[in-house]
């Protein structure tokens, strides 16, 4: 594609995306949070507060110009720790979906394209795994293998792929009879070419939108897990853990709970709005 064509197409996409103000808000929120999180050591006021740190002169300080979100029971800056807490959320979402999406997409493609007993095997396995609730599964795995971030992420990924297998399987079943797929077959194209070059690109928009939505889901779930004490171990900051710790000091020291909780909320809203915008642009029906 020529550069001018590319720019025109981009402008079209942007026009459709920007029709909805929430989409723009979602994009700005998501991009800002990701950037700030990557640059956390440089943009936060007290990066040393992210780890082991105590300052007993400054415990339980309410929000002020020095500590925007106040301080906690050992005097650490809640704003700094919230930003660092996003790291855990994003790593969690990235790893879980980084494993689950490719796995589910490939299994969905294979089962949808080949059909027969391969399809039955993969889809019945999907049904079985789908019956396990992710939160319960993560708790169970943590109980057996020990509460460890890696274990929790693997537990979630081992469940999450099913949604993608189902989504892609459904699309492939209808796309494999399209005439352009038959045309490629007549020309003698390989099965790999047909699956990954002819069919997969037509599933990509739906996969992208679902991945964005699921990022919000995983973050929500990981906050829930760390609230329950599964996930990262203190003093590493996780937003869920901070909410749980702060809850012990409610209602007097409300900022310890409210601000980390709001931080989770903002990111989830941002991702959902972004997903809505992408859905409009890419014309996806989920």
């Amino acid at each position: 594609m020529k550069f001018a064509d590319f720019r025109r197409k981009l402008a079209q996409y942007w026009y459709r995306f920007s029709q909805n103000k929430a989409s723009i808000a979602g994009l700005i929120i998501t991009v800002t949070i990701v950037l700030v999180t990557i640059l956390a050591p440089y943009v936060t006021p007290y990066p040393e507060h992210a780890g082991v740190f105590v300052d007993f002169r400054n415990t339980f300080k309410p929000p002020s110009s020095a500590n925007w979100f106040g301080t906690d029971q050992v005097g650490r800056d809640i704003f700094t720790r919230s930003i660092f807490g996003y790291r855990f959320s994003l790593i969690m979402a990235g790893t879980v979906l980084g494993i689950a999406v490719p796995l589910g997409v490939v299994l969905g493609l294979v089962s949808g394209y080949f059909g027969g007993w391969i399809e039955s095997l993969i889809m019945r396995l999907t049904d079985i795994v789908l019956a396990l609730p992710p939160l319960a599964m993560a708790i169970a795995v943590s109980a057996v293998l020990g509460s460890d971030l890696g274990n929790t992420m693997i537990a979630l990924a081992m469940i999450w792929w099913t949604w993608y297998a189902r989504l892609v399987h459904g699309m492939v079943v209808s796309l494999r009879n399209e005439e352009y797929v038959e045309a490629a077959q007549i020309m003698g194209a390989s099965k790999l070419h047909i699956m990954f070059r002819e069919i997969l690109p037509n599933c990509a928009p739906a996969i992208l939108v679902k991945t964005t939505l699921d990022a919000a889901f995983v973050i929500e779930l990981s906050a829930g897990l760390s609230f329950l004490g599964l996930g990262v171990r203190p003093p590493e900051p996780a937003l869920g853990t901070m909410v749980a710790e702060g809850a012990r000091y409610l209602p007097a020291n409300w900022w310890m709970t409210v601000f980390p909780a709001l931080a989770i909320l903002v990111l989830i809203f941002g991702l959902n709005w972004l997903a809505d915008g992408l859905r409009d642009v890419l014309d996806v029906d989920l």
Binding site: E179, Y180, R197, P201
Partner: peptide
């Protein structure tokens, strides 16, 4: 439908 919508 005989041309793949995502391929030039």
């Amino acid at each position: 439908s005989s041309l793949n919508p995502r391929r030039t």
